[in-house]
């Protein structure tokens, strides 16, 4: 796996770069035993594009997201982010500068909203780290971001329990948009939603990307969604990078056996397809 060559000025501008990123967790109890959550991850994310990260549980997808967001400290390697002054190591950036640029949307829309706060408070909360705002100003700003995600006045004073799963995920996205970030890390934002609602959120994310020029890092286990939605895909397994490239190339013409297994596991293919059966048996054995 080679790093992308230095990009040309604007069209393929790299906004986030990950170099030799590692995370090792010490296991509780047994002395000296460690778990390698992430091994030597290298990647570059281009402005305005969507990078999908696929892999099974324990493959290191969420660890990667946490390292980018500085929610964990890397054991080795670094993450750098394009700031006005050029590429800067995230480790040296104050949290307030980092979160202006990068925001996150979490998987479970039921668990990631404070049940005791009204929606306007939740959505405008990130702003309070940057500006002194009155209650009225906060409500106004919250309403602005709610409009962007297709919600409105009706939801402004609601509590999270009053909203449906899809509406809650919209609130999560509105909150992430509140600092006008350039990069959104979407950690399985669809998996808790019903199929018809999933489609609404995918459409919304595509619209926002087009209108606001957002860059997405989209963590998912659903290959069909990735194929529809992403430009590039990174396949991970047990903390290792398996394959990284353009979606068409990786999903239509995978070079790694593991990627082929993952593709073969997608449900909905005809019964008893020989290739499929063989792949499943390989996986069961391994």
């Amino acid at each position: 796996m080679s790093l992308v060559s230095m990009p040309s000025a604007d069209t393929n501008e790299v906004v986030l770069r990950v170099e030799n990123l590692c995370k090792v967790f010490r296991l509780p109890g047994a002395r000296g035993q460690v778990f390698n959550a992430l091994n030597q991850l290298n990647l570059a994310v281009t402005r305005g594009r969507t990078l999908a990260v696929v892999g099974e549980s324990g493959s290191g997808k969420s660890t990667m997201a946490q390292l980018i967001m500085k929610l964990q400290r890397p054991s080795a390697g670094r993450v750098s982010l394009r700031m006005d002054s050029g590429m800067r190591d995230v480790a040296d950036l104050p949290a307030r500068d980092l979160y202006r640029k990068v925001q996150m949307v979490f998987q479970d829309p039921y668990a990631s909203l404070n049940p005791r706060q009204r929606i306007w408070r939740i959505v405008s909360a990130p702003l309070c780290n940057y500006e002194n705002l009155s209650r009225d100003e906060r409500r106004q700003r919250a309403l602005h971001y709610l409009h962007q995600v297709g919600l409105g006045e009706t939801q402004l004073h609601a509590f999270p329990y009053m909203l449906s799963g899809g509406q809650r995920q919209r609130v999560n996205i509105a909150r992430a948009l509140a600092t006008n970030p350039e990069i959104l890390i979407l950690d399985e934002p669809l998996s808790a939603l019903d199929v018809s609602v999933q489609a609404q959120i995918i459409n919304l994310l595509q619209d926002l990307q087009r209108d606001l020029g957002l860059t997405y890092i989209f963590i998912s286990h659903d290959i069909a969604v990735v194929r529809h939605f992403a430009d590039q895909v990174l396949v991970m397994k047990s903390g290792d990078m398996v394959e990284w490239g353009d979606v068409d190339q990786v999903l239509e013409n995978p070079s790694q056996a593991y990627t082929r297994q993952l593709l073969g596991s997608m449900p909905g293919r005809p019964r008893d397809l020989p290739v499929r059966k063989e792949l499943i048996n390989v996986m069961a054995g391994g």
Partner: peptide, 8 residues
């Protein structure tokens, strides 16, 4: 479950 496990 994960997709690969689901298939199994």
């Amino acid at each position: 479950l994960d997709v690969t496990v689901q298939a199994q």
